[in-house]
């Protein structure tokens, strides 16, 4: 709104001068974005080329949609797209439930001191790299030494080598992801609960509402708008994969690809195998799908709650 006042009229000399000096501040940032973000965007032409490193990008032959066709007619397309979407949907469903639940637990905690301690511990995984995460998961799942197989053999069974059991990985990865991320995402809901009117809760209690009823009829309705926004924002990221989680934690075991290979790990492997054109094509598909999702979900948010739009 403030911008509009200056926008319509011709800028005075002073405004120009000021803008020039402010623009100067932006120059290093602009140059870096140009070099490392905008120039690579032109590289997407590789997706339409039969790229040969020796011939270079411009020298390589055009091949139309061949790289895309190759990917979309292969088993890999079904597998990676299905995995990317299904995991993200699972993360949204379980992540929302877990972080709302955790926020409610935090909210009912009376001791500030305890809250701080619990909170610090639960947020800690955010400081860990995916590599360390892989270590921690292996402590549980190692075939010979892992805690899980020890427990199983203590109970009289024999545990399998989990790193060869694709069926187990949707659970393992979802649990790992939840372990790592609910701490931070619960903070958003907790912050929202802090703004809940205490009198409303007292009134509900006076009317005889028990804890479950208070949660169901007072707290959850209070959180609903925040939940909706968070879910929509996450839906916008449906095609974005957590490369660290999916590459490090399953330790890149080929046997596990059916349930652990996502678009990001696929493009990475294609790059490492030297299939640069195919990797670019799949990456481009992911970028475009992601762009559509973000713009789409943003349009929805604009209708639901304009103050939460991204742009």
């Amino acid at each position: 709104m403030r911008a509009k006042a200056t926008k319509r009229r011709k800028y005075s000399k002073k405004t120009y001068r000021e803008s020039m000096s402010m623009g100067l501040l932006a120059v290093p940032g602009i140059i870096l974005l140009l070099v490392f973000n905008y120039i690579p965007m032109f590289g997407i032409v590789i997706a339409f080329k039969d790229y040969k490193p020796l011939k270079g990008i411009l020298g390589s032959e055009w091949c139309g949609w061949d790289n895309f066709k190759f990917f979309f007619t292969s088993q890999d397309a079904v597998r990676t797209i299905r995995n990317t979407l299904c995991y993200n949907i699972g993360f949204i469903v379980f992540g929302t439930m877990a972080s709302v639940g955790l926020a409610l637990l935090f909210y009912h905690l009376r001791s500030r001191r305890a809250l701080k301690v619990y909170n610090t511990v639960i947020i800690m995984p955010k400081f860990l790299s995916a590599v360390i995460l892989a270590f921690l998961v292996e402590i549980f799942l190692n075939y010979r030494f892992g805690l899980l197989n020890h427990l199983i053999s203590a109970l009289g069974g024999t545990g399998p080598d989990w790193y060869t059991q694709p069926a187990a990985w949707p659970f393992i990865l979802t649990i790992t992801k939840m372990w790592g991320s609910v701490g931070v995402s619960s903070m958003i809901y907790y912050a929202s609960l802090m703004s809940l009117d205490g009198e409303l809760l007292e009134a509900a209690q006076l009317d005889g509402a028990n804890l479950v009823k208070r949660i169901w009829h007072v707290m959850l309705p209070h959180l609903t708008p925040v939940i909706i926004i968070q879910v929509i924002l996450n839906i916008g990221q449906l095609f974005t994969g957590d490369f660290g989680l999916f590459y490090q934690v399953p330790q890149d075991q080929g046997l596990l690809y059916p349930t652990t290979d996502i678009i990001n790990t696929y493009t990475f492997r294609a790059l490492m195998d030297g299939n640069l054109a195919r990797s670019t094509a799949v990456g481009l598909f992911q970028s475009v799908a992601g762009l559509i999702m973000v713009v789409g979900t943003n349009a929805i948010i604009k209708k639901v709650s304009p103050e939460n739009t991204l742009f």
Partner: peptide, 14 residues
């Protein structure tokens, strides 16, 4: 730059 990127390969080549 938040909405769209060229992906891994173009940056790699750059």
């Amino acid at each position: 730059t938040m909405l769209f990127s060229g992906g891994m390969v173009p940056s790699y080549l750059l």
